[in-house]
Design a protein around this nucleic acid. Sequence first.
DNA 1: GATTTATTAGACTGAATCGTCTATTAATTC
DNA 2: GAATTAATAGACGATTCAGTCTAATAAATC
Lengths: 220, 220
Amino acid sequence: MTQTAPLQPANQKPRRGRPRGAPDASEARQKLIRAGLEHLTEKGYSSVGIDEILKAAGVPKGSFYHHFHGKADFGLALVAAYDAYFTTQIDRAFLDEKHAPLDRLRIFTERAEAGMARHGFRRGCLVGNLGQEMGALPDEFRAALTAVLEGWQARTTRLLSLAQAQGTIVPHHDPSTLAETFWIGWEGAVLRAKLELRPDPLRRFADTFLRLIETETTDT
Amino acid sequence: MTQTAPLQPANQKPRRGRPRGAPDASEARQKLIRAGLEHLTEKGYSSVGIDEILKAAGVPKGSFYHHFHGKADFGLALVAAYDAYFTTQIDRAFLDEKHAPLDRLRIFTERAEAGMARHGFRRGCLVGNLGQEMGALPDEFRAALTAVLEGWQARTTRLLSLAQAQGTIVPHHDPSTLAETFWIGWEGAVLRAKLELRPDPLRRFADTFLRLIETETTDT
DNA sequence: GATTTATTAGACTGAATCGTCTATTAATTC
DNA sequence: GAATTAATAGACGATTCAGTCTAATAAATC
Protein backbone atom coordinates (compact mmCIF):
# COMPACT_ATOMS: atom_id res chain seq x y z
CA MET A 1 0.00 0.00 0.00
CA THR A 2 1.72 3.14 -1.24
CA GLN A 3 1.07 6.39 0.51
CA THR A 4 -0.23 8.37 -2.43
CA ALA A 5 -1.72 11.23 -0.41
CA PRO A 6 -1.36 12.47 3.15
CA LEU A 7 -4.22 11.31 5.32
CA GLN A 8 -4.52 14.63 7.12
CA PRO A 9 -5.91 17.08 4.57
CA ALA A 10 -5.49 19.83 7.15
CA ASN A 11 -1.78 19.34 6.86
CA GLN A 12 -1.32 19.59 3.14
CA LYS A 13 -2.08 23.27 2.66
CA PRO A 14 -0.06 25.77 4.69
CA ARG A 15 -3.20 27.97 4.77
CA ARG A 16 -2.56 31.43 3.40
CA GLY A 17 -4.56 34.20 5.15
CA ARG A 18 -5.53 34.93 8.70
CA PRO A 19 -5.87 31.65 10.59
CA ARG A 20 -9.23 30.68 11.94
CA GLY A 21 -9.32 31.07 15.72
CA ALA A 22 -10.13 28.06 17.88
CA PRO A 23 -13.79 27.22 17.16
CA ASP A 24 -14.95 28.04 20.68
CA ALA A 25 -12.38 30.55 21.83
CA SER A 26 -13.92 33.42 19.87
CA GLU A 27 -14.91 36.08 22.32
CA ALA A 28 -17.86 37.25 20.23
CA ARG A 29 -19.21 33.74 19.97
CA GLN A 30 -18.96 33.18 23.70
CA LYS A 31 -20.74 36.43 24.45
CA LEU A 32 -23.53 35.49 22.05
CA ILE A 33 -23.97 32.09 23.65
CA ARG A 34 -24.09 33.56 27.11
CA ALA A 35 -26.59 36.26 26.17
CA GLY A 36 -28.61 33.73 24.21
CA LEU A 37 -28.87 31.37 27.16
CA GLU A 38 -29.97 34.16 29.45
CA HIS A 39 -32.68 35.33 27.09
CA LEU A 40 -33.96 31.98 25.81
CA THR A 41 -34.18 30.33 29.22
CA GLU A 42 -36.39 33.22 30.24
CA LYS A 43 -38.47 33.94 27.18
CA GLY A 44 -38.07 31.00 24.85
CA TYR A 45 -37.01 30.92 21.24
CA SER A 46 -39.81 32.53 19.26
CA SER A 47 -40.19 35.69 21.26
CA VAL A 48 -36.52 36.58 21.44
CA GLY A 49 -35.16 38.55 18.50
CA ILE A 50 -31.62 38.37 17.23
CA ASP A 51 -31.17 42.12 17.59
CA GLU A 52 -32.08 41.79 21.26
CA ILE A 53 -29.29 39.28 21.76
CA LEU A 54 -26.81 41.32 19.77
CA LYS A 55 -27.51 44.33 21.93
CA ALA A 56 -27.17 42.35 25.18
CA ALA A 57 -23.94 40.74 24.00
CA GLY A 58 -22.53 43.96 22.54
CA VAL A 59 -21.75 42.21 19.27
CA PRO A 60 -22.66 43.40 15.78
CA LYS A 61 -24.82 41.47 13.39
CA GLY A 62 -21.95 40.70 11.05
CA SER A 63 -20.29 38.62 13.76
CA PHE A 64 -23.47 36.72 14.50
CA TYR A 65 -23.89 35.55 10.93
CA HIS A 66 -20.20 34.86 10.68
CA HIS A 67 -20.34 32.41 13.58
CA PHE A 68 -23.81 30.95 13.00
CA HIS A 69 -25.78 30.05 9.88
CA GLY A 70 -28.94 31.62 11.28
CA LYS A 71 -31.24 31.69 14.25
CA ALA A 72 -31.93 27.95 14.17
CA ASP A 73 -28.24 27.08 14.06
CA PHE A 74 -27.69 29.45 16.98
CA GLY A 75 -30.50 27.80 18.90
CA LEU A 76 -28.97 24.37 18.43
CA ALA A 77 -25.62 25.72 19.62
CA LEU A 78 -27.37 27.00 22.73
CA VAL A 79 -28.87 23.59 23.37
CA ALA A 80 -25.41 22.02 23.09
CA ALA A 81 -23.90 24.58 25.45
CA TYR A 82 -26.73 24.17 27.92
CA ASP A 83 -26.39 20.40 27.82
CA ALA A 84 -22.66 20.61 28.43
CA TYR A 85 -23.13 22.87 31.43
CA PHE A 86 -26.02 20.95 32.88
CA THR A 87 -24.42 17.55 32.45
CA THR A 88 -21.44 18.62 34.51
CA GLN A 89 -23.82 19.82 37.23
CA ILE A 90 -25.56 16.47 37.23
CA ASP A 91 -22.32 14.54 37.38
CA ARG A 92 -21.00 16.73 40.14
CA ALA A 93 -23.98 15.73 42.28
CA PHE A 94 -24.58 12.17 41.13
CA LEU A 95 -20.99 10.97 41.28
CA ASP A 96 -20.20 12.42 44.70
CA GLU A 97 -19.47 9.34 46.76
CA LYS A 98 -19.49 11.29 49.99
CA HIS A 99 -23.28 10.95 49.93
CA ALA A 100 -25.73 8.10 49.61
CA PRO A 101 -27.28 7.77 46.11
CA LEU A 102 -30.69 9.16 47.02
CA ASP A 103 -29.08 12.04 48.88
CA ARG A 104 -27.24 12.92 45.70
CA LEU A 105 -30.49 13.25 43.82
CA ARG A 106 -31.89 15.41 46.58
CA ILE A 107 -28.77 17.58 46.52
CA PHE A 108 -29.10 18.00 42.78
CA THR A 109 -32.67 19.24 43.08
CA GLU A 110 -31.69 21.63 45.86
CA ARG A 111 -28.89 23.11 43.80
CA ALA A 112 -31.19 23.41 40.83
CA GLU A 113 -33.64 25.26 43.02
CA ALA A 114 -30.89 27.58 44.21
CA GLY A 115 -29.98 28.18 40.59
CA MET A 116 -33.52 29.19 39.73
CA ALA A 117 -33.78 31.33 42.86
CA ARG A 118 -30.70 33.24 41.72
CA HIS A 119 -32.76 34.64 38.85
CA GLY A 120 -36.00 35.08 40.74
CA PHE A 121 -37.46 31.91 39.17
CA ARG A 122 -37.84 33.75 35.89
CA ARG A 123 -35.51 31.46 33.98
CA GLY A 124 -36.54 27.90 33.26
CA CYS A 125 -34.93 24.94 31.56
CA LEU A 126 -33.86 25.66 28.00
CA VAL A 127 -34.78 22.13 26.95
CA GLY A 128 -38.24 22.40 28.46
CA ASN A 129 -38.79 25.80 26.92
CA LEU A 130 -37.84 24.70 23.43
CA GLY A 131 -39.66 21.41 23.82
CA GLN A 132 -42.86 23.29 24.49
CA GLU A 133 -42.20 25.44 21.42
CA MET A 134 -41.53 22.48 19.11
CA GLY A 135 -44.65 23.26 17.10
CA ALA A 136 -42.99 26.46 15.94
CA LEU A 137 -39.40 25.22 15.69
CA PRO A 138 -37.41 23.66 12.84
CA ASP A 139 -37.70 19.92 13.14
CA GLU A 140 -33.99 19.39 13.81
CA PHE A 141 -34.62 20.55 17.37
CA ARG A 142 -36.71 17.50 18.11
CA ALA A 143 -33.91 14.98 17.96
CA ALA A 144 -31.49 17.34 19.67
CA LEU A 145 -33.76 17.97 22.64
CA THR A 146 -34.74 14.34 22.98
CA ALA A 147 -31.11 13.27 22.97
CA VAL A 148 -30.24 15.75 25.70
CA LEU A 149 -33.01 14.46 27.95
CA GLU A 150 -31.97 10.88 27.32
CA GLY A 151 -28.45 11.74 28.38
CA TRP A 152 -29.62 13.18 31.67
CA GLN A 153 -31.89 10.20 32.18
CA ALA A 154 -29.08 7.73 31.55
CA ARG A 155 -27.07 9.32 34.35
CA THR A 156 -30.10 9.19 36.62
CA THR A 157 -30.68 5.56 35.78
CA ARG A 158 -27.17 4.69 36.93
CA LEU A 159 -27.73 6.55 40.18
CA LEU A 160 -31.03 4.84 40.87
CA SER A 161 -29.58 1.43 40.01
CA LEU A 162 -26.98 2.01 42.66
CA ALA A 163 -29.65 3.03 45.15
CA GLN A 164 -31.62 -0.07 44.32
CA ALA A 165 -28.57 -2.29 44.71
CA GLN A 166 -28.11 -0.77 48.17
CA GLY A 167 -31.75 -1.39 48.95
CA THR A 168 -32.70 2.23 49.57
CA ILE A 169 -35.39 2.39 46.88
CA VAL A 170 -38.30 0.16 46.06
CA PRO A 171 -37.18 -3.07 44.37
CA HIS A 172 -40.14 -3.61 42.07
CA HIS A 173 -39.51 -0.66 39.78
CA ASP A 174 -37.08 -0.50 36.88
CA PRO A 175 -34.49 2.25 37.59
CA SER A 176 -34.70 3.37 33.99
CA THR A 177 -38.46 3.81 34.30
CA LEU A 178 -38.07 5.75 37.51
CA ALA A 179 -35.40 7.96 35.95
CA GLU A 180 -37.64 8.74 33.00
CA THR A 181 -40.52 9.50 35.33
CA PHE A 182 -38.30 11.77 37.38
CA TRP A 183 -37.28 13.86 34.36
CA ILE A 184 -40.79 14.03 32.97
CA GLY A 185 -41.97 15.34 36.30
CA TRP A 186 -38.98 17.53 37.01
CA GLU A 187 -39.44 19.43 33.76
CA GLY A 188 -43.04 19.93 34.78
CA ALA A 189 -41.90 21.22 38.14
CA VAL A 190 -39.50 23.72 36.58
CA LEU A 191 -42.27 24.94 34.31
CA ARG A 192 -44.60 25.36 37.25
CA ALA A 193 -41.98 27.11 39.38
CA LYS A 194 -41.40 29.58 36.56
CA LEU A 195 -45.12 30.15 36.29
CA GLU A 196 -45.58 30.74 40.02
CA LEU A 197 -42.22 32.46 40.53
CA ARG A 198 -41.46 30.38 43.59
CA PRO A 199 -39.65 27.19 44.63
CA ASP A 200 -42.67 25.32 45.96
CA PRO A 201 -43.36 23.18 42.88
CA LEU A 202 -39.74 22.04 42.75
CA ARG A 203 -39.82 21.02 46.41
CA ARG A 204 -43.23 19.48 46.11
CA PHE A 205 -42.27 17.22 43.26
CA ALA A 206 -38.85 16.28 44.60
CA ASP A 207 -40.17 15.54 48.09
CA THR A 208 -43.10 13.48 46.94
CA PHE A 209 -41.15 11.56 44.32
CA LEU A 210 -38.35 10.76 46.72
CA ARG A 211 -40.70 9.74 49.52
CA LEU A 212 -42.62 7.49 47.16
CA ILE A 213 -39.61 5.60 45.85
CA GLU A 214 -37.80 5.32 49.17
CA THR A 215 -38.03 2.03 50.98
CA GLU A 216 -39.71 2.33 54.37
CA THR A 217 -37.52 4.00 56.95
CA THR A 218 -39.85 2.71 59.66
CA ASP A 219 -39.77 6.29 60.92
CA THR A 220 -42.11 5.66 63.86
CA MET B 1 -85.26 52.70 52.39
CA THR B 2 -87.13 54.20 49.44
CA GLN B 3 -86.58 52.67 46.04
CA THR B 4 -85.29 55.76 44.26
CA ALA B 5 -83.95 53.98 41.15
CA PRO B 6 -84.54 50.60 39.51
CA LEU B 7 -81.93 48.07 40.55
CA GLN B 8 -81.56 46.66 37.03
CA PRO B 9 -79.95 49.40 34.94
CA ALA B 10 -80.37 47.17 31.89
CA ASN B 11 -84.07 47.64 32.29
CA GLN B 12 -84.33 51.39 32.40
CA LYS B 13 -83.30 52.23 28.83
CA PRO B 14 -85.24 50.54 26.03
CA ARG B 15 -81.94 50.54 24.06
CA ARG B 16 -82.28 52.18 20.68
CA GLY B 17 -80.19 50.57 17.92
CA ARG B 18 -79.28 47.02 17.04
CA PRO B 19 -79.23 44.91 20.18
CA ARG B 20 -76.03 43.31 21.27
CA GLY B 21 -76.08 39.57 20.59
CA ALA B 22 -75.60 37.13 23.46
CA PRO B 23 -72.00 37.56 24.61
CA ASP B 24 -70.96 34.06 23.54
CA ALA B 25 -73.41 33.28 20.78
CA SER B 26 -71.56 35.37 18.20
CA GLU B 27 -70.55 33.07 15.39
CA ALA B 28 -67.42 35.06 14.61
CA ARG B 29 -66.32 34.95 18.21
CA GLN B 30 -66.82 31.20 18.42
CA LYS B 31 -64.87 30.61 15.22
CA LEU B 32 -62.04 32.74 16.54
CA ILE B 33 -61.92 30.85 19.82
CA ARG B 34 -61.91 27.52 18.06
CA ALA B 35 -59.18 28.50 15.62
CA GLY B 36 -57.22 30.12 18.43
CA LEU B 37 -57.29 26.98 20.54
CA GLU B 38 -56.13 24.86 17.63
CA HIS B 39 -53.23 27.13 16.84
CA LEU B 40 -52.11 28.04 20.36
CA THR B 41 -52.19 24.50 21.73
CA GLU B 42 -49.87 23.57 18.90
CA LYS B 43 -47.55 26.54 18.57
CA GLY B 44 -48.03 28.65 21.66
CA TYR B 45 -48.85 32.31 21.99
CA SER B 46 -45.83 34.21 20.72
CA SER B 47 -45.36 32.45 17.43
CA VAL B 48 -48.98 32.58 16.31
CA GLY B 49 -50.02 35.75 14.52
CA ILE B 50 -53.50 37.22 14.59
CA ASP B 51 -53.71 37.19 10.80
CA GLU B 52 -53.03 33.47 10.88
CA ILE B 53 -56.02 32.95 13.16
CA LEU B 54 -58.23 35.25 11.12
CA LYS B 55 -57.44 33.29 8.00
CA ALA B 56 -58.13 29.94 9.66
CA ALA B 57 -61.38 31.19 11.17
CA GLY B 58 -62.48 32.98 8.01
CA VAL B 59 -63.17 36.15 9.97
CA PRO B 60 -61.97 39.67 9.16
CA LYS B 61 -59.79 41.75 11.42
CA GLY B 62 -62.59 44.18 12.22
CA SER B 63 -64.53 41.42 13.94
CA PHE B 64 -61.54 40.34 15.96
CA TYR B 65 -60.98 43.76 17.45
CA HIS B 66 -64.69 44.19 17.94
CA HIS B 67 -64.90 41.10 20.13
CA PHE B 68 -61.52 41.35 21.85
CA HIS B 69 -59.44 44.24 23.12
CA GLY B 70 -56.26 42.79 21.67
CA LYS B 71 -54.14 39.69 21.49
CA ALA B 72 -53.69 39.42 25.26
CA ASP B 73 -57.42 39.68 25.89
CA PHE B 74 -57.98 37.03 23.25
CA GLY B 75 -55.39 34.79 24.89
CA LEU B 76 -57.13 35.07 28.25
CA ALA B 77 -60.45 34.22 26.61
CA LEU B 78 -58.81 31.12 25.16
CA VAL B 79 -57.58 30.12 28.61
CA ALA B 80 -61.11 30.48 29.98
CA ALA B 81 -62.58 28.45 27.13
CA TYR B 82 -59.93 25.78 27.51
CA ASP B 83 -60.52 25.60 31.25
CA ALA B 84 -64.27 25.24 30.77
CA TYR B 85 -63.83 22.41 28.29
CA PHE B 86 -61.16 20.63 30.25
CA THR B 87 -62.94 20.89 33.57
CA THR B 88 -65.97 19.11 32.17
CA GLN B 89 -63.67 16.36 30.89
CA ILE B 90 -62.14 15.98 34.32
CA ASP B 91 -65.53 15.89 36.03
CA ARG B 92 -66.85 13.39 33.55
CA ALA B 93 -64.08 11.00 34.53
CA PHE B 94 -63.63 11.83 38.21
CA LEU B 95 -67.31 11.79 39.19
CA ASP B 96 -68.19 8.58 37.40
CA GLU B 97 -69.23 6.34 40.24
CA LYS B 98 -69.28 3.27 38.06
CA HIS B 99 -65.54 3.06 38.61
CA ALA B 100 -63.26 3.00 41.64
CA PRO B 101 -61.54 6.35 42.33
CA LEU B 102 -58.11 5.34 41.08
CA ASP B 103 -59.63 3.81 37.97
CA ARG B 104 -61.23 7.18 37.24
CA LEU B 105 -57.85 8.86 37.27
CA ARG B 106 -56.49 6.19 34.98
CA ILE B 107 -59.45 6.63 32.63
CA PHE B 108 -58.87 10.35 32.56
CA THR B 109 -55.24 9.91 31.51
CA GLU B 110 -56.23 7.42 28.84
CA ARG B 111 -58.80 9.77 27.38
CA ALA B 112 -56.31 12.60 27.45
CA GLU B 113 -53.88 10.40 25.57
CA ALA B 114 -56.55 9.58 23.00
CA GLY B 115 -57.20 13.30 22.64
CA MET B 116 -53.56 14.00 21.93
CA ALA B 117 -53.34 11.05 19.56
CA ARG B 118 -56.21 12.53 17.55
CA HIS B 119 -53.90 15.34 16.53
CA GLY B 120 -50.75 13.33 16.13
CA PHE B 121 -49.42 14.53 19.50
CA ARG B 122 -48.73 17.91 17.98
CA ARG B 123 -51.08 19.77 20.28
CA GLY B 124 -50.25 20.14 23.94
CA CYS B 125 -51.95 21.69 26.92
CA LEU B 126 -52.74 25.36 26.46
CA VAL B 127 -51.99 26.06 30.11
CA GLY B 128 -48.63 24.35 29.92
CA ASN B 129 -47.77 26.13 26.70
CA LEU B 130 -48.58 29.57 28.03
CA GLY B 131 -46.99 28.80 31.38
CA GLN B 132 -43.73 28.07 29.63
CA GLU B 133 -44.06 31.34 27.72
CA MET B 134 -44.78 33.44 30.82
CA GLY B 135 -41.49 35.28 30.40
CA ALA B 136 -42.87 36.83 27.23
CA LEU B 137 -46.51 37.21 28.26
CA PRO B 138 -48.42 40.04 29.94
CA ASP B 139 -48.40 39.42 33.65
CA GLU B 140 -52.17 38.94 33.91
CA PHE B 141 -51.67 35.47 32.48
CA ARG B 142 -49.83 34.33 35.58
CA ALA B 143 -52.80 34.48 37.93
CA ALA B 144 -55.16 33.12 35.29
CA LEU B 145 -53.03 30.08 34.54
CA THR B 146 -52.30 29.38 38.19
CA ALA B 147 -56.00 29.54 39.05
CA VAL B 148 -56.85 27.08 36.30
CA LEU B 149 -54.32 24.57 37.54
CA GLU B 150 -55.54 24.97 41.10
CA GLY B 151 -59.07 24.21 39.95
CA TRP B 152 -57.99 20.98 38.30
CA GLN B 153 -55.96 20.10 41.36
CA ALA B 154 -58.88 20.69 43.71
CA ARG B 155 -60.93 18.17 41.78
CA THR B 156 -58.07 15.72 41.88
CA THR B 157 -57.68 16.23 45.60
CA ARG B 158 -61.31 15.25 46.16
CA LEU B 159 -60.82 12.13 44.08
CA LEU B 160 -57.68 11.08 45.92
CA SER B 161 -59.29 11.77 49.29
CA LEU B 162 -61.99 9.35 48.34
CA ALA B 163 -59.43 6.77 47.28
CA GLN B 164 -57.61 7.23 50.53
CA ALA B 165 -60.82 6.85 52.54
CA GLN B 166 -61.38 3.58 50.72
CA GLY B 167 -57.83 2.52 51.47
CA THR B 168 -56.69 2.14 47.88
CA ILE B 169 -53.85 4.63 48.12
CA VAL B 170 -51.04 5.09 50.59
CA PRO B 171 -52.28 6.59 53.85
CA HIS B 172 -49.23 8.65 54.80
CA HIS B 173 -49.53 11.18 51.99
CA ASP B 174 -51.76 14.23 51.92
CA PRO B 175 -54.20 13.92 48.97
CA SER B 176 -53.71 17.58 48.17
CA THR B 177 -49.96 17.06 47.94
CA LEU B 178 -50.41 14.05 45.71
CA ALA B 179 -52.83 15.94 43.49
CA GLU B 180 -50.38 18.80 43.09
CA THR B 181 -47.60 16.35 42.31
CA PHE B 182 -49.78 14.65 39.76
CA TRP B 183 -50.47 17.86 37.87
CA ILE B 184 -46.89 19.04 38.03
CA GLY B 185 -45.83 15.77 36.51
CA TRP B 186 -48.70 15.42 34.09
CA GLU B 187 -47.93 18.78 32.50
CA GLY B 188 -44.37 17.57 32.14
CA ALA B 189 -45.64 14.40 30.50
CA VAL B 190 -47.76 16.31 28.00
CA LEU B 191 -44.79 18.48 27.13
CA ARG B 192 -42.63 15.45 26.61
CA ALA B 193 -45.25 13.65 24.54
CA LYS B 194 -45.49 16.67 22.27
CA LEU B 195 -41.73 16.76 21.95
CA GLU B 196 -41.46 13.07 21.09
CA LEU B 197 -44.72 12.92 19.13
CA ARG B 198 -45.79 9.75 20.91
CA PRO B 199 -47.87 8.58 23.87
CA ASP B 200 -45.06 6.91 25.80
CA PRO B 201 -44.32 9.75 28.24
CA LEU B 202 -48.01 10.02 29.17
CA ARG B 203 -48.20 6.31 29.88
CA ARG B 204 -44.88 6.25 31.65
CA PHE B 205 -45.83 8.97 34.06
CA ALA B 206 -49.38 7.78 34.68
CA ASP B 207 -48.31 4.17 35.20
CA THR B 208 -45.46 4.96 37.54
CA PHE B 209 -47.37 7.54 39.54
CA LEU B 210 -50.35 5.27 39.98
CA ARG B 211 -48.25 2.25 40.90
CA LEU B 212 -46.33 4.30 43.46
CA ILE B 213 -49.38 5.62 45.26
CA GLU B 214 -51.42 2.43 45.16
CA THR B 215 -51.49 0.37 48.29
CA GLU B 216 -49.99 -3.08 47.81
CA THR B 217 -52.25 -5.35 45.80
CA THR B 218 -50.18 -8.34 47.01
CA ASP B 219 -50.08 -9.30 43.33
CA THR B 220 -48.44 -12.74 43.62
C1' DG C 1 -87.99 55.45 6.30
C1' DA C 2 -84.86 57.97 9.59
C1' DT C 3 -81.99 57.03 13.49
C1' DT C 4 -79.07 54.46 16.33
C1' DT C 5 -76.08 50.89 17.67
C1' DA C 6 -73.72 46.27 16.57
C1' DT C 7 -71.01 43.95 13.56
C1' DT C 8 -68.36 43.08 9.51
C1' DA C 9 -64.83 44.41 6.11
C1' DG C 10 -60.14 45.12 4.99
C1' DA C 11 -56.71 48.81 3.65
C1' DC C 12 -53.25 50.95 6.05
C1' DT C 13 -49.44 52.20 9.68
C1' DG C 14 -45.34 51.99 12.25
C1' DA C 15 -42.48 48.96 14.53
C1' DA C 16 -40.14 44.65 14.66
C1' DT C 17 -38.74 40.39 12.30
C1' DC C 18 -34.62 37.61 10.07
C1' DG C 19 -31.37 37.77 6.89
C1' DT C 20 -28.26 40.03 3.08
C1' DC C 21 -24.99 43.04 1.54
C1' DT C 22 -20.88 46.00 1.15
C1' DA C 23 -17.12 47.82 3.70
C1' DT C 24 -13.58 47.91 6.95
C1' DT C 25 -10.22 46.03 10.06
C1' DA C 26 -7.18 42.15 11.74
C1' DA C 27 -3.87 38.51 11.26
C1' DT C 28 -1.35 35.70 8.78
C1' DT C 29 1.87 33.96 4.37
C1' DC C 30 4.62 34.98 0.52
C1' DG D 1 4.36 45.42 1.56
C1' DA D 2 1.14 42.65 -1.49
C1' DA D 3 -2.07 38.94 -1.15
C1' DT D 4 -5.28 36.21 1.31
C1' DT D 5 -8.53 34.83 4.61
C1' DA D 6 -11.05 35.80 9.25
C1' DA D 7 -13.73 38.67 11.75
C1' DT D 8 -16.14 42.86 12.72
C1' DA D 9 -19.35 46.61 11.55
C1' DG D 10 -23.88 48.12 10.63
C1' DA D 11 -26.89 50.03 6.81
C1' DC D 12 -30.48 48.11 4.24
C1' DG D 13 -34.51 45.18 2.38
C1' DA D 14 -38.41 42.31 2.28
C1' DT D 15 -41.72 40.47 5.22
C1' DT D 16 -44.56 40.03 9.19
C1' DC D 17 -46.36 41.86 13.44
C1' DA D 18 -50.26 43.96 16.44
C1' DG D 19 -53.22 47.38 16.18
C1' DT D 20 -55.89 51.61 13.98
C1' DC D 21 -58.92 53.63 10.93
C1' DT D 22 -62.73 54.50 7.72
C1' DA D 23 -66.43 52.66 5.54
C1' DA D 24 -70.09 49.44 4.65
C1' DT D 25 -73.79 46.43 6.24
C1' DA D 26 -77.21 44.53 9.70
C1' DA D 27 -80.82 44.82 13.08
C1' DA D 28 -83.31 47.03 15.97
C1' DT D 29 -86.45 51.56 17.71
C1' DC D 30 -88.98 55.54 16.71
